[in-house]
């Protein structure tokens, strides 16, 4: 298998197309929560894709930013899935969804405080220990201007990286959406990201909130990547170098070739990058 370059979020509808697609560097990502079953066609379909392409597991249900340790049974289930599919990346979100035994299936915000940092550091440690590997943590899209933050999102994430050794899954669309919604400078945000921590990049489409009198952008994953987000992406990878990049699409799912065409744009951006100095050094050392 070639080194993973640009990949696609994988839906069961596209299992056959994905397994048959020979594109070099193509990889796929799934939410592990959608594969926590005993058997059947869904696991079989993912197995067939995994036989030909690298896979990434992108969790949405660990509730790492909640004031309680991650669910042990869920960690065990993730470990079993990771042992079976041997993903090259495993990631989760800087968000919560569980409180008092009930799940609110979304990526919910929280005040970024020192005490939250201590709790979330423990939770990321617990995840990395249970899975026996480094994980990537993703910046979520934000819709609510909370009071009580003690640090910016990128300060919080950088400190989490420093304390746990985790990496970052940088979602460029989420940066764009959060900055548009809460007032922020997306370019400044991306420029402040510690390059060496970024292990994966996400790109997706957003849409304007359809609710009356709402000025918000929504990270719907239901549209092509916006031109502004492509521009931010180019700027980012020109600074930090090539990273596995994923096009996420969950809603209004197009035919596979159309998704591949969008994925190929990211692949072309990555191929166009001049060899990164770090990589040259690594190459020189290897010789």
């Amino acid at each position: 298998m070639a080194t993973p370059s640009a990949g696609l979020g994988l839906k069961p509808k596209h299992f056959r197309d994905a397994a048959a697609c020979p594109a070099a560097g193509l990889w796929f990502e799934v939410h592990p929560e959608n594969y926590l079953c005993d058997g059947g066609p869904r696991l079989a379909g993912l197995t067939a894709v995994r036989e030909v392409h690298p896979l990434s597991l992108h969790g949405v249900g660990l509730s790492l930013a909640g004031d309680e340790p991650p669910d042990r049974a869920h960690l065990k289930a993730l470990r079993r899935l990771a042992d079976r599919f041997e993903p090259f990346l495993v990631s989760e979100h800087l968000a919560w969804s569980r409180r008092g035994g009930a799940y609110h299936p979304d990526l919910l915000p929280f005040p970024r405080t020192m005490s939250a940092l201590v709790r979330i550091t423990d939770n990321v440690d617990a995840m990395q220990t249970a899975l026996g590997r480094r994980v990537l943590i993703e910046n979520p899209s934000l819709y609510l201007d909370l009071r009580g933050h003690e640090m910016s999102e990128i300060e919080f994430l950088s400190e989490l990286v420093r304390r746990t050794g985790c990496g970052l899954l940088l979602d460029v669309n989420n940066v764009f959406v959060s900055c548009a919604n809460l007032g922020g400078d997306a370019e400044a945000y991306l420029d402040a990201v510690p390059a060496e921590a970024v292990g994966e990049i996400h790109l997706a489409g957003h849409e304007r909130d359809a609710r009356p009198r709402s000025p918000l952008l929504i990270d719907t994953h239901g549209a092509p990547v916006a031109p502004e987000v492509w521009a931010l992406y180019r700027r980012l990878v020109h600074r930090i170098g090539s990273r596995p990049t994923l096009i996420e699409r969950d809603d209004e799912l197009p035919q596979f070739p159309k998704l591949m065409a969008e994925r190929d744009i990211a692949d072309a951006v990555l191929q166009s990058l001049a060899p990164h100095p770090d990589r040259e050094i690594a190459h020189a050392c290897a010789q």
Binding site: P111, L142, L144
Partner: peptide, 15 residues
Amino acid sequence: PWLAPDETPPGLAVY
């Protein structure tokens, strides 16, 4: 206490 005063934020409806 965690919300800006005097408004019902549309973000709450999103979540």
